[in-house]
Simulated scan of single mutants.
Amino acid sequence: MNLFRAARAVAGSDGDGPVDWTAVGAAAHAATDPGDLSLSPAERDGYADDVADARASIRAAAGVDFDLPETIEVQNRHHWIDANIETFRRLLAPLEGQVTLAPALARTANTGSMAVTLGFLANNVLGQYDPLLLGDGDDDHGLYFVHPNIVAVADALDVDHDRFRRWIAFHEVAHAAEFDSAPWLAPHLESSMEHAVSELAAGRFDRRALDDLNVTMTAVEGYAELVMDRAFDEEYADLREKLDERRGNVGPVSRIIRRLLGIGRKRRQYERGKGFFDAVADERGVAGAAVVWERQENLPTDAELDDPDAWLRRVS
């Protein structure tokens, strides 16, 4: 990790756009320890076995048929940064046409902000299902595990590495189940994100669009939390308790960054979505909860997230 090199990359940002994405990557790399990726044969086999077992268990418990991504990678933090720069660039593309009074100064500030964002996330993401939103349609979706973070968090929580890794695999494979069994979901998220960012780029704040996007992501995260727990083939209560506690216990700097990045909202999505789907599954079983992915109209409304019985009456 070299903070001076990171600052130099940001200061030297160049180009015509509001963000120098090459400098973002260089700065994020320089400021982030990549972490150890020297996997033993048992660890490498463990990831493969966990993903395969998660697919079988989720298909059986949730009653959904889905395929795994062709791209499944165990990464270090630099690999994760590289895999996500293009996603951030595509998401923020509507900002490319923005004109500022001091474009060079704005570009430096934007480049630094994006480098900090990617570096912070690279140090915190455990696993990621990537449906490659806003892509050109030629790329496959992917499944990534950030091994150094999984090891570090397992150590911090004082839990067995293999069991924790397996539980995370169930969560990410649950996301694969959602998107592969609901062909409408990725296009819906794409259009919602493009509209929200375009409105912001035009100086407008579309509260309804952001609320609709939040409701969809609450359903996506909540369902994955449900399946993560109920399809898991080992005891998980201690993992759930410790991980939830970790999500709430962060230092003051991390708390500020998390608030700026909206990660506090993401935690609320986990909690609210899981509460909704737990109630649905208690009434109709885990397979009954999968009805949400049959068509876009089956997504819960904001009010229904707090009233699962109303959703059950509507989709029955």
Rank of each mutant, 00 (worst) to 15 (best):
A122N: 15
T108Q: 13
Q98D: 12
N76G: 05
F88L: 13
A102C: 04
A93W: 06
G119N: 10
A104K: 07
H79Q: 06
Q98M: 12
F88C: 04
Q75T: 03
G97F: 04
S113W: 11
Q98V: 10
T117N: 11
R90M: 08
A106I: 04
L92Y: 09
R90S: 07
R107D: 12
R107G: 04
G97K: 07
L121M: 11
N110H: 06
G119Y: 14
E86I: 02
A102Y: 05
V116N: 12
I85C: 02
A83R: 04
G127E: 06
L91W: 07
L101H: 11
I85Q: 10
N76A: 03
R77E: 01
L126G: 11
L118E: 03
D82M: 00
G97M: 04
L126D: 08
R107T: 07
P94V: 00
A104L: 08
P94E: 01
M114L: 07
H79G: 15
I81C: 09
A83L: 08
F88N: 09
T108A: 11
L126K: 02
T108G: 05
T108H: 06
P94F: 01
T100V: 06
G127W: 02
L118Q: 11
F120A: 08
L118C: 11
Q98L: 13
G97T: 07
V125K: 00
L121T: 05
V125I: 12
R89Q: 06
A104F: 03
L95N: 15
A115H: 06
N124F: 08
V116M: 15
N84V: 09
Q75Y: 02
T117M: 09
Q98G: 08
L91E: 08
M114W: 12
R77C: 04
L92N: 12
R77L: 10
G97Y: 04
S113L: 15
N123K: 10
R89T: 00
N110K: 06
N123R: 09
Q98E: 14
T111F: 02
P103V: 00
W80G: 00
F88T: 13
A106W: 01
H79K: 06
A106P: 08
A102D: 10
W80E: 02
L126A: 03
N110I: 05
E86F: 00
W80H: 02
E96F: 03
E86R: 09
V116L: 14
V125N: 00
A115T: 13
